[in-house]
Amino acid sequence: MNPYLFGYLAAAIIGLSAVALTRKNPVHAVLLMIVMFFHLAVLYLGLGAEFLAAVQIIVYAGAIMVLFLFVVMVLNIKEEIESERFTGGWPLGVSLAAGLFLLLIILTGKVLPGQQGVYTAQVIASQTDTKALGVLLYTQYIFPFELASLILLVAVVGAIVLAKKKLR
């Protein structure tokens, strides 16, 4: 991946997230998040994970953020804009996050590189990442995959039960 491109994307992702956090208008914050998701998708594209990039846009930018926007639009914006952006405990949160960040920076140099797997960039490019991902998910990782689907199904049923007023 082109280092300049990566630099731009990383800076943009961090910058956009920071700006989104400080917006008073929640609709603007949601919009900035969507722009951030686009940068994330381009990051995936640069790494050769085209399927993930497309799914990032379809699922996050396309579906989840529309629902976010839906909820946010029903809020009373005038009230929301006047209220304080952060609660009193924010310096504590910031210092905790900064500590974690420092820890990560210290640890990055110490990490041992893992063993190189079968799926190198060339292998994935020759059989497309969509196929590689699909084959792995439905053979080697079929059990965790099905388990995750089951958990999601339980969540869906739970949401319907909660939303339904009368249960016979």
Partner: peptide, 10 residues
Amino acid sequence: LLFILAMSSL
């Protein structure tokens, strides 16, 4: 095809 779905969701 996925790209088209992504763009139409926007």
